[in-house]
Amino acid sequence: MKQANIITSIIFILFGFWIIYASKSFEQTFLSDNFIGADFFPRIMAIIMIILAVFLLITTFYDKTLKDTKISDILNKKMKLPIAGTFVLIVYLLVMEFLGFIIATIALNLVLLLIFRVKKLQYLVLVPLLTTIIIYYAFSNFLMVPLPQGLFSF
């Protein structure tokens, strides 16, 4: 966790400074009764965030109980499927507006099952179809949520 903690603190320190920088652009309104402006809260927040991150950095160096796990032990092969899954979801979101909810979601479920190496044909057919149709029916008829229809509307 040591490396991870150090990287985490650095990210939060940079993030805090960015918040302070970005909050500079919040123009003050000229309301006479506005005692603390829109930038007050974000700035206080960012300052405490930086202090905490520095604190984490210092305690990480002094904490001898922390396991000396390298960041490479955390980011390892195990992440292959989650990364693949995220990628599939990004593609899904990009094509959903063209394909419409039904086709895109059936495809999404099928692709996910395939990358999970599900081989049974009945699962590959039933899970995508049933999931999509039940969700579509429940949301568009029962809850009146208009899901994207895409080019091929039903």
Partner: peptide, 23 residues
């Protein structure tokens, strides 16, 4: 879990969308 995970993901997608009908 191989069956559960795609279902969770599908529900999450619709759930996130349904509030404001926004992709």
């Amino acid at each position: 879990k191989k069956i559960i995970v795609p279902i969770i993901i599908s529900l999450s997608i619709v759930g996130a969308y349904a509030m404001n009908n926004s992709i």
